[in-house]
Design a protein around this nucleic acid. Structure first.
Lengths: 224, 224
DNA sequence: TGTTATGCAATAGTAATACTATCATAATAA
DNA sequence: TTATTATGATAGTATTACTATTGCATAACA
């Protein structure tokens, strides 16, 4: 039996459901590859159309603009990640182990992920998120987007992680701050190691294990 | 006697020294105001030129493009901040107090800063940095910019803070990771409180004191 | 005093971006 | 079969991100 994870995306993010057609699915797939490779700034619907041998106007029928396409992709990713956390921590009582799982998921330090969603290598998607996720809210439109609940998946995963911290130490006053920190640094420390290694303690290594150990210490020492 | 802080900026960041003329200084001043207000994405040299009642081409004589203008501004800011840290921690031996000072500087939780540099309210500049600093390295040009040492001021302040941690606990293995974390979160938690408050523990308050307390705990508990 | 940099304004022009609109045709659902 | 919908093809617009040229005013210099 095959399981396929269905993730519901905020309908305001798209004009036409990209999952409903071949073209739509290709926009997601090729869009992810191109944004990951060249960054959202130099990505255009025209370039994507050329790649897909279709037209700009066809793409505009699915997404109002590239920012909303990006938010669609990010929404899928964060919901997928939250599902992985829920799934993998289910029935586990050892809180230390739970933290390990959360960190492994955030760092994509694992092979066995449930598939579904856009037909791309999840590691490519992960790299896209590392580079582009922060830009999605560090934008002038943050308040409009927030009113439209475009950041809900990100908030949800953050609040869920905070809940775990709260469970471990109900007295701790900064669960949400700490969750935001872990979420953001799990992306940024990887980026720094790759691009600005002197901002980290283990330049050179592509090992994610050090980052995990650092974040784990940060959490456990904070929660004592 | 008046002190005026002179900060040296990487010469590759500009074509003509903006400090050397009235127009140059106005580009910095009005540029900061406009980028802070509208964000780097919708900011253009044309709009700035209109504001300054000059022409686009005149501005292009000072800066190759808006990204380099932003990097110029950020370079100035980070060097200014590092100077503040050095100045204010000088002759202080109590390490707890030193951490307090560092956090107050990073959060601009202080009135008495040495002036100099662009003739703008330093709080406006600080707000600009909160919103725009991360974008400056989460860019496709990060490697080129890094080769040109455009991120040196950011690295310098980060490494200096890491050095302080190392001083407090020479055994601690993650000084640089922790410094990067504190530097990034001092910006992001403020942004979250303003824009995505459910990512923090103290929505509603504009108080920076909670963020400071959180970061202080993070540091002190990590360094025990 | 005339010469020469220089700094800046004015104007023009280009390729790319971020769309919007219209119409025809192909696929499909009623 | 007809009606609906999706896509393709083409065109067009305002804005962006520049580059290039010319000419004028002023300050420095000889």
């Amino acid at each position: 039996m095959q399981w396929n994870l269905e993730i519901k995306i905020n309908e305001k993010l798209y004009l036409r459901d990209p999952k409903s057609s071949e073209l739509g699915r290709n926009i997601l797939k090729e869009g992810i590859l191109m944004i990951e490779e060249h960054g959202i700034e130099s990505f255009t619907f025209k370039k994507l159309a050329q790649q897909l041998k279709t037209t700009e106007s066809s793409i505009y029928r699915y997404f109002e603009n590239k920012q909303l396409l990006l938010l669609y992709i990010l929404s899928w990713y964060w919901q997928w990640l939250e599902y992985l956390i829920v799934y993998k921590t289910n029935n586990i009582s050892d809180t230390g182990k739970k933290i390990d799982i959360v960190l492994d998921v955030l760092l994509l330090n694992t092979q066995d992920y449930i598939d579904g969603g856009p037909d791309v290598d999840k590691r490519v998607l992960h790299n896209l998120v590392i580079k582009e996720a922060s830009k999605s809210y560090l934008s002038h439109d943050v308040s409009t987007f927030n009113e439209n609940k475009f950041y809900k998946p990100y908030k949800d995963i953050s609040i869920r992680i905070a809940g775990l911290f709260q469970e471990i130490n109900p007295e701790y006053k900064y669960s949400r701050n700490l969750a935001s920190t872990v979420l953001l640094m799990s992306r940024n420390l990887y980026f720094f190691m790759q691009n600005l290694p002197s901002l980290t303690d283990f330049p050179g290594t592509k090992e994610v294990a050090n980052t995990k150990e650092f974040l784990k210490q940060l959490i456990t020492k904070s929660l004592v």
